[in-house]
Design a protein around this nucleic acid. Structure first.
Lengths: 254, 254
DNA sequence: GGCGGGATTCGATATTGTCGGAATACGTCT
DNA sequence: AGACGTATTCCGACAATATCGAATCCCGCC
């Protein structure tokens, strides 16, 4: 048993998580849900409301408040890659007309933090793609570009920790092929995603590092195979994305 | 003393808030900061890490994790106004070339949840304007449009609760003028912000309601006085914004 | 190899989170 | 109005658990 973890925090967290799923709930519903005495749940709810993590609607039910959004965005602002990359992501999306995004590494996983849709993008797997979503690094173009910055040793740690569960039939699910792929990425300087994360989505990604900030990130362009093939997919976009990465990288060091 | 509020949750919250400001900190720095025993701070930090609210960087220091961003955006997705309004905000920004945003009401304050910059927008008071920021309802165009949905009685409650502290020299700081202004808004159907929130920023806002969802929101266009004057400010934009609000309102009821 | 500072663990203690039950407020239906 | 059912708050007792000091570990540095 993990020694000394504050039980009330864990409980509070579970309540929040569940409440996100439930969208809204009354105190008694929550007490029911967690099979806790009403009075105890009241103390949690009151406290969570007091610190502004949840908010009471006019019908008396509670929902998770926008503080999470606020804090999340404040944290984003702390990463100076975000400030630097954000306008470039936008320009990249405009120039290519496709989807462009910025991912940062956190706990050896990828967090999508910024995204813009170009004019060619009809609509996205919106459900799956929003700021803050985490994904395994081996599944995406930015992710693989980030992975390529790790040593083989570290990569094995990552795969051991998170596994290599497939997301599509193209996902790389074995370590050795992954390491080969990573080697290729290291050589050519960019990573390709051939429908390995989403069906109908190909992508081109490049990594960005900031030593001083102890930070690892990646940018990528994504689009459908009918537009992402041959020249654009294999030459044009890799070059374009690399140029944007260079700009960002440059601006990072002032 | 507020009876029965869970102390550990409050403390955890303070730690998170402080850690956002500090960007990164070691356990001992935090213990110092809060003047708590090291061992106690360890338990907080370990627990917060365990529930993924903070994350340990490679240098051993901690920072607030992206979970907040993730949860925040999940919550956003729960509001169906967001889904409906988001594309319209984008189109509104494109059509006008100005800044367009969506605000929702929460705890009688305004939360900016979506924003797009049109091509004419050079750069914003970016520091002050990001998803999740709260502002008093009397200070903005969307805010005032939202306020106009409340009864005079309720408006007085709001001002009593949050006060009417000026943000610029144009901010309305007295209740009676505010109520007059709100009356005007109710009649004409839209709200104007003449540099009442930010110097150099005028805006036009309209409210959106969704009875079924017990929800109150507003959209607005913002821009500089040199482009926001006479016709556009007084006639064209109000009409445009109203049209977009109608579309959103319509889509809300399926 | 010894020294020092930070990180981490451990165990005793009392603080505080927990819980049942009582008391109160609120709304609805008859 | 009155009576019921539900939601919410209050209370006191108990035991779990958060807390804290001190001991231990770890690592870089002299």
């Amino acid at each position: 048993m993990s020694p000394q973890l504050l039980k009330s925090l864990r409980r509070a967290n579970h309540i929040i998580e569940r409440l996100v799923e439930m969208e809204a709930a009354s105190v008694s519903e929550l007490a029911e849900e967690f099979d806790m005495p009403l009075s105890t749940m009241y103390e949690y709810v009151n406290t969570l409301e007091n610190i502004n993590y949840i908010t009471k609607r006019s019908d008396g039910r509670y929902r998770v408040s926008s503080s999470f959004l606020e804090i999340g965005n404040q944290v984003l602002r702390n990463h100076n890659v975000y400030d630097v990359a954000e306008p470039e992501i936008r320009r990249l999306a405009e120039q290519t007309g496709e989807f462009a995004g910025l991912m940062i590494e956190e706990d050896r996983a990828g967090v999508l933090v910024s995204m813009k849709k170009g004019e060619k993008v009809k609509r996205l797997q919106v459900n799956r793609t929003y700021p803050g979503v985490k994904s395994r690094l081996n599944t995406t173009a930015y992710g693989k570009a980030i992975l390529a910055q790790f040593s083989d040793e570290e990569i094995r740690e990552v795969t051991d920790r998170y596994g290599l569960h497939p997301r599509t039939e193209n996902t790389i699910t074995e370590v050795d092929p992954l390491l080969e792929e990573i080697d290729r990425i290291r050589e050519q300087g960019y990573a390709l995603d051939d429908e390995e994360c989403f069906n109908g989505m190909r992508g081109v990604g490049v990594s960005i590092t900031s030593k001083g900030d102890d930070l690892l990130a990646g940018i990528a362009v994504y689009g459908p195979p009918n537009r992402f093939r041959d020249g654009p997919f294999l030459e044009e976009y890799p070059e374009t994305v690399q140029e944007y990465a260079d700009v960002i990288q440059g601006n990072l060091e002032y």
